[in-house]
Design a binder for these strands. Structure first.
Lengths: 174, 174
DNA sequence: ACAATCCCGTTATACTATAACAGGACGGAG
DNA sequence: CTCCGTCCTGTTATAGTATAACGGGATTGT
């Protein structure tokens, strides 16, 4: 029910290139299906977002695109981002002003995130029971739900143990 | 378990001045208890946020403060906001870059929001069972939770029925 | 080929937030 | 009371995020 995503450690465990490629394939299929155009900028933007191991800021992405000869003005990147967001191919992490490849673009889902304050890695998880509760809850208020922003921040397991180790070392020293 | 908050319609139903006053009292008590100083700017900022009927942007707040003779440079307002956020007296609505009085500062809670895309009103609700699930979920991943951003956007009951009425009228006309 | 639409280039600007340093107010120790 | 340290504020400058507006070029369907 939960899925690790974009964590550097994962590089050891999976072929990240394959992730990117698969995301691109999904994107192409989706666009074809919906009569949308996955243009060069959009396609490359999506690739770059996926290649990054953590959420990418709009201007970081813009810089990368510029390096490759794309236009370097902000609207370029924001247009691409808007398109990808609209197609459900990426998510915006509101609390970071950053953008992340969507791990489940091929099926209906909502993106819930666990964000580490320390290393800024993000795990996306898909939590159907909470989703159902939220919908139900909103409906009871006569509220028609369109989007959910669920962002949990804190310390990931790795940083937590690193922090505890550092603390212990400092204590031993004193 | 849920509580309407800051909705214009509520003006008919409750004495908003009382809300503001009560929030201020809570704030004073809290600061006293924690040895924090609720200075003039901070106090006035909190009041203005509460007086507003929807989330207030930092620069909107700054403008109001400036009108009243406070310093008009951004750090003034961001410092006040940081303080109030830290004390748990207000929330930041990440998806709007705006700030909202916290309805339950006097007890431990997390702020979950229902945000209307149309009228931009926000209802805060307090949803203990979801909170518990999220904590549990994070813990299972070895993740130590620090903060939660739960923002649901869509159409509130009022705007929904207004929208449907408008649609119907358009249809009748054609 | 034509029109309609969608996409992109470009310039300018709005909006959101923080860095850095100096001075002043406040509270507690002596 | 006064000195000291700390917390708060004033001020200037700048970083970072996002959109408006307009014109031109590409694409698609007819």
């Amino acid at each position: 029910m939960s899925e690790k995503h974009n964590h550097p450690k994962d590089e050891e465990h999976h072929d990240h290139d394959h992730c990117v490629e698969s995301a691109l394939q999904t994107a192409e299929a989706l666009c074809l299906e919906q009569g949308q155009r996955l243009t060069k900028v959009r396609r490359r933007a999506l690739e770059l977002i996926w290649e990054s191991h953590r959420p990418l800021g709009a201007y970081q992405l813009l810089a990368k695109l510029a390096e490759e000869g794309f236009n370097s003005a902000p609207p370029t990147v924001y247009r691409a981002l808007d398109f990808l967001l609209g197609a459900g191919l990426i998510h915006k992490v509101e609390s970071m002003n950053a953008y992340l490849g969507c791990a489940h673009a091929d099926r209906a889902h909502k993106g819930y995130f666990l964000i580490c304050d320390e290393c800024h890695n993000v795990m996306e998880f898909d939590y159907q029971d909470i989703h159902a509760s939220l919908i139900d809850k909103a409906k009871k208020q006569g509220f028609e739900l369109r989007a959910e922003t669920i962002e949990l921040t804190g310390l990931c397991a790795t940083c937590k143990s690193a922090g505890e180790a550092a603390k212990k070392a400092a204590k031993d020293k004193s």
